Amino acid sequence: MNNLVIMKNQQAVTTSLQIAEAFGKQHKDVLEAIRDKMSTAENSALFKMFYEDTYVAVNGKRNRMYYMNRDGFTFLAMGFTGKKADEFKLKYIEAFNQMEAQIKIDTKNLSPELQMFKGLFDSLAKQELATNKIEAKVDNISEIVALNITDWRKDSRALINKIAQAQGGYGAYKEIQNAIYTELERRGKVNLKTRQTNKRRRMADEGVCKSTRDKLSKLDVINDDNKLIEIYTAIVKEFAIKYGVWNEEH
């Protein structure tokens, strides 16, 4: 795949069409993601990251095409997950670095907003590199946190506790746990609340007492599905890396 990043108006940019092709997405879905971010933006700097420039024919239809600079790509690509997505993020990082090395941008002359997003991009790049280093060292999440069929809950909880402590203490635990559940539902295409309700109904039909049914947690629901366990533990690992609670003992 060529020309991930090009020069336009003296800055390194890529396009919504190129992003769609690289990440294996429909162009209309990439456009929708960009428009969603722009529609909710309160900071005018975001509108400098994405800008329309032309129309292109996609699947026989005339579509807008957005150009985006490095910061726009970073802001958009943070929502793309998975191993293949990580590989392309790194390719883009390298392409932007090579292109920008040619024009030698003095970041001190950037606006405070762009300097902030450049810092965000640099942080993302370091995170991606760290993730790939870990992936090369181990084959799966069970090796990383010693998770198995009996210990995955305990080991995951220990990591989430470390994340919460790093984010301000016990009060952050619930917020982080809910964020992990939300990401699990997105990746697993499942509604944990619905499964929880359905399982409580089945338990009631089986004569299980109400107090026991009320104690049924989302983790109990996850425990019934090995695929959900795999996704959940992978997300916990990613959060541990993201919040910097990783160390060599893992």
Rank of each mutant, 00 (worst) to 15 (best):
A234D: 13
Q167V: 01
Q102K: 13
F121D: 10
N9T: 03
V58D: 04
D36Q: 06
T150W: 11
K218E: 11
D139F: 00
S111L: 10
K83I: 07
N161H: 12
N69D: 15
N178Y: 14
Y243W: 13
G82H: 11
T40R: 09
A204L: 13
D225F: 15
M49P: 05
D36G: 02
K118E: 10
F73Y: 01
R195C: 07
G188T: 05
E185I: 08
N97F: 00
R157T: 07
G169Y: 11
A33M: 09
A146N: 14
K91S: 05
I141W: 14
N9G: 10
E42Y: 10
I105C: 07
Q127A: 02
A164C: 13
R195I: 05
A95K: 04
G60C: 01
R62F: 15
D139L: 00
K174D: 08
Y51A: 05
A240D: 06
G79T: 07
D71H: 00
I93S: 04
V30E: 06
T14Y: 00
E143M: 04
S156H: 14
G24W: 10
N2M: 01
E52A: 05
R202S: 09
C209F: 01
W152V: 02
F239V: 13
E185L: 05
K48I: 08
T107D: 07
R35Y: 10
N178M: 13
D36I: 06
N59E: 15
M7D: 14
Q165F: 09
L110I: 08
Q127S: 02
N3I: 04
K25S: 02
F88L: 10
A77D: 02
A95S: 11
N226F: 04
A172L: 10
A172D: 13
G188S: 08
S44W: 10
H250S: 05
